[in-house]
Every structure is written in structure tokens, then in C-alpha cells.
Computed example of a mutant assay.
Amino acid sequence: MKFNFLVLGVVSIVVFGFVTKSERTFAEKEYKLVWSDEFSVDGVPDEKNWSYETGFVRNHEKQWYQKENAYCKNGFLIIEAKKEHKVNPNFISKNHPDWTKKRDSIKVTSSCLITRDKHSWQYGRFEMRAKIPVAKGMWPAFWTLGVKGNWPENGEIDIMEYYRGKILANVAWKSDKKDTQWDSTSHLLSDFKKVNWANEFHVWRMDWDANSINLYVDNQLLNETSVTGTMQGKNHKVFPFKQPHYLLLNLAVGGDQGGSFSRASFPSKYVVDYVRVYQKK
């Protein structure tokens, strides 16, 4: 998820690469599972793993985040965006300079689950199997933020981000330049050469170590970022990708990147089968 700041996009050209069965077997022997949520118990997501953002948070998005829109059912986590009219409890004035306080009402609700202050990891393999919503205006994401520093100093990794017909894989950080630095790739859904691709489950993965951050979907390499390349600034106080990161799972609506939506977009459901973190043995 991109924050509401000026950004400088560094666009990489990526040729989809496939990982062979033998390579996957080798990787499975190399890693051990250190944390997971399989969402196997119906009801509220496990409070030992997740907390929630509340309110209007970032990017001028339309949804009001609340925990009620996230629930487990039949072995899946469901994050649901829906039309819901409420009074904005933080409203002050329609002329207020803070956009979160100038909206008098809430018209869309959704959820953002985070592991901050509960779980974080430095390096490893991060995986999510999920079916993402692609209705007009939907903006689902599976991403990480560093535990130290303010954005973008702490570093951001978008393992999965979708909006306006595109799958994105991004890494963002602060450098000595004025604007936030981005290593970002974008792929149209049509690039995946399957008519029903968006209606199926897919596995998003990050392999991250001290040298590189590699982002995949279904073993197709989408983006590769050099960790060393993010540490070129002279004024670094935090090295964003040499520190633990926590996870975020959210379904945003509209805003700076999500674009317009219609009544037909609701309800939309982001359905997650599992989230797993592996580290090298």
C-alpha cells in the first residue's frame, strides 16, 4: 500500500521466471516454518496474531477500517468491504485541513489486520494463499513495514498489491533524495494468460535475506530488489531492510490508487487461506 506522499517510481522490467519442482523441494528443505495462521477456527481472527487499524488511515481511501469486517469461516480469513452508512466520530469540520476529520460520514467499511507488536521477523520466506477481489475500486494488499522509524524510513514491502486491473510488487524506502524511492513492477491481469485467474486462489511469496528481496506469485518472479541498493544514503538512521518487519493484510477501497467504484462493487471479499513465515534452518 502506498502512503500519501510524493513518490519517485523506479520501474523494473521483469521477465516471468518459473521455479522448478526440484528447486522448490530444495527450498523446502532449506527453510523451517516459524509462524503461521491457518484461520481454522470460525469467528474472530486469533488475537494472539492480529490487531486492527481503526478509522480513515491513509491515501484518502474511502473505507473506514474496523475489526468487524474481518472474520474466519470454513478455514478462511475473509476481509469484507461493504457499503455501510455511519457518522464519522472524528469529524470536526468540512473545512478542516486533515482529510480524516473533514468527512462527516462513513460510507464504506473494511478491515486492516496487522501483526505489529505481536509478531515481526527479519528475513525469511513469507507466503500467503488467497483469492483477491478485483471489482472496480478494490485495493487489496499483503505487505510489510519495518518496526523502527517512520514511513518511509522504516521501509515497505508490498508482496501483493492490486488496483485498477494491475498486480504490483513494490519495495519503498527513504534515501537522501527528496522523494521516496520505489522499486516497483506492475503487471496487467491479462499478463497471466488465464481468463479465470482472478477467480482462483494464488500463492504470493517473498524471499528476503541480507542481500535481496524477491517477490513472486505462483512461483513467477515479479520483482527483485537489492538490499544494498537501498542503503546508499549518507544520512540513514535506520536501515529499513536489515531490521524486523511486521505484516499487514487489508482491503482498501478507492483513494489515491484504488480509483472510482460503484454500488455493484459491494460487497467484495478478500479470501485468505493461510499466511506463513519460514526462516532458514
Rank of each mutant, 00 (worst) to 15 (best):
N4H: 11
F5C: 01
L8T: 06
G9L: 08
V10A: 00
I13V: 10
V15M: 08
F18Q: 13
R24T: 14
F26G: 09
K29R: 12
K29G: 14
S40W: 03
D42G: 07
D42M: 11
G43D: 11
G43L: 07
E47L: 13
E47I: 08
K48V: 01
S51R: 10
Q63R: 03
W64Q: 06
Y65M: 02
Q66T: 12
K67C: 01
E68R: 09
L77S: 09
A81G: 14
H85M: 00
V87T: 14
I92E: 11
S93E: 01
K94N: 14
H96P: 03
K101T: 05
R103H: 14
C112Y: 01
D117Y: 09
W121C: 09
Y123L: 09
F126Q: 00
R129M: 10
A130I: 05
I132F: 15
P133N: 12
V134N: 14
V134D: 12
K136S: 10
M138Q: 13
W139A: 06
P140N: 14
A141H: 08
F142Q: 10
N150K: 11
E153S: 14
G155S: 05
D158Y: 02
M160W: 04
Y162V: 15
I167T: 09
L168F: 13
N170C: 06
D179T: 02
W182G: 02
S184M: 12
S190A: 07
A198Y: 06
A198G: 14
E200I: 10
E200Q: 15
D207I: 06
D207W: 04
S212R: 12
I213T: 04
E224Q: 15
T225Q: 05
T225I: 07
T225H: 04
T228Y: 06
T228E: 14
Q232V: 08
K237A: 02
P240F: 03
P240M: 03
K242T: 10
Y246I: 11
L248I: 15
N250A: 08
V253W: 06
D256N: 12
G259D: 06
S260T: 14
S262Q: 00
S265F: 01
F266Q: 10
K269E: 12
D273A: 05
Y274G: 05
Y274I: 03
K281W: 08
